[in-house]
Nucleic acid binder design. Structure first.
Length: 136
DNA sequence: GCCAACGTTGGC
DNA sequence: GCCAACGTTGGC
């Protein structure tokens, strides 16, 4: 079991919209590092859903329901998608500010590589974020 | 709206 | 293969 975090701008694709769809294809990734992370996802891996720009907080938990395959929105064979489904909205969203001030999360990719849109989360970071979200 | 970080492109 | 120019992301 691996853990991940994906970013989305709530003005473009919010958590609530994702929930209303029930399950969706995660497309549009055009960055090699993010693409490699998509390829490394396995079914049932858990994925934090982060709102960038507006909100700037982790709002929900999703899971991988289908592993990576060719991105149907492009002919370019370099790009892939996965399919995700919502698991639950976090009891308490975990803000970027809170993550920044938590010494247990000082090494998280969200802070280290601020522009990456799909990133791995370590098990201990996953547990810590769930704790901060009142999900323990 | 600004700017830092960083990825991509293209000239040499 | 280097690097300047440029575009994009995302926090502030």
């Amino acid at each position: 079991m691996n853990y991940w975090l994906v970013k989305s701008e709530p003005d473009t694709y919010s958590w609530d919209f994702f929930v209303s769809k029930g399950r969706d294809i995660w497309d549009g990734v055009r960055n090699y590092q993010a693409r490699n992370n998509l390829k490394a996802m396995s079914e049932n891996d858990l994925v934090f859903f982060y709102h960038s720009n507006k909100g700037m907080e982790i709002v929900g938990l999703a899971k991988v329901v289908k592993e990576s395959y060719q991105d149907p929105t492009t002919e370019d064979p370099r790009w892939v998608v996965v399919e995700l489904a919502p698991v639950k909205k976090l009891a308490e969203p975990v803000s970027l500010t809170k993550i920044k001030t938590d010494p247990n999360l000082s090494d998280i990719s969200l802070l280290k590589q601020s522009r990456l849109s799909v990133m791995p989360i370590k098990p201990e970071e996953f547990d810590r974020i769930m704790y901060l979200a009142n999900e323990v």
